[in-house]
């Protein structure tokens, strides 16, 4: 059986910010139906790498391949057009809008198509219906579908942000510390959501500091330290200690 090319591949990525060498020849691959954990201490280069994939920064050198083809990702909008969705740590939700309005904000379903997007009229009911269907499929329960997200709890807001990414993701979903601000119970729900994303055939890149979550969910883990990739392995209970040593740089 021939394996298909990875849906996302980074080849020898380099990124400098002035004197700071943030990424040093980093390569990695993400496959459909797998969760890739991106590990590393603060300042290891995780966020920089993710920002290069999601179009916020551009790589200085190296290339990004989607399904085996080199692409140039110049902006967040371009990344989304390529099928890459990012759930930012601050969630990027609009407090005064409802979940459905949040789902489609910036990508509204509207008509007529011959007008520029800004002048089109919203198709509110179609967006409500499709957003409800997605939330239902992901088994996300919200107290009220027509309330602004300002009235919802941290876990519910996180779930909405993740669900929004799934509406448009066709290839890769990047989650930046999705459970950092959540309690145990709410974290559980988000982890279930991540598992569901994987089951639906997305490549998931998960940034987290929680080793339990990595061992439970990740199919592979890539460890960055000081901008360099220092290891890649399948996380298990047995090699948890090894992973931690790689992250902090203490050779076992």
């Amino acid at each position: 059986m021939t394996t298909p090319p990875p849906v996302l591949a980074i080849r020898r990525a380099e990124k400098r910010f002035g004197a700071v060498h943030a990424l040093k020849s980093v390569s990695l691959e993400a496959h459909r139906g797998q969760v890739l954990a991106l590990l590393g201490d603060n300042g290891a280069g995780k966020s920089t790498l993710v920002k290069c994939i999601s179009g916020v920064h551009a790589l200085d050198e190296g290339e990004i391949l989607l399904d085996g083809e080199a692409v140039a990702i110049h902006s967040p909008a371009a990344a989304r057009r390529f099928g890459i969705e990012t759930v930012y740590q601050d969630l990027a939700l609009f407090d005064t809008l409802t979940p459905a309005q949040n789902f489609y904000c910036g990508r509204e379903i509207a008509f007529p198509s011959w007008l520029p997007q800004g002048l089109r009229l919203l198709k509110g009911r179609a967006m409500d219906r499709q957003a409800a269907a997605v939330l239902d499929r992901l088994k996300v329960k919200l107290p009220r579908f027509d309330a602004p997200v300002a009235l919802m709890s941290g876990g519910q807001r996180q779930a909405i942000a993740v669900a929004r990414a799934t509406v448009f993701a066709r290839k890769v979903v990047i989650l930046d510390e999705p459970t950092a601000a959540l309690g145990v119970r709410e974290s559980r729900k988000v982890l279930d959501l991540v598992a569901q994303l994987r089951a639906e055939g997305n490549a998931v890149i998960l940034i987290t500091h929680n080793m339990e979550h990595v061992i439970e969910l990740a199919d592979r883990a890539v460890v960055l330290r000081q901008g360099r990739k220092v290891g890649e392995l399948k996380p298990t209970r047995a090699n948890q200690q090894e992973l931690v040593s790689m992250i902090v740089g203490a050779e076992a």
Partner: peptide, 12 residues
């Protein structure tokens, strides 16, 4: 409402 989110979501 959220200027940074508006940029991230690709709103002009």
């Amino acid at each position: 409402g959220q200027p940074e989110a508006a940029v991230q979501m690709g709103i002009p």
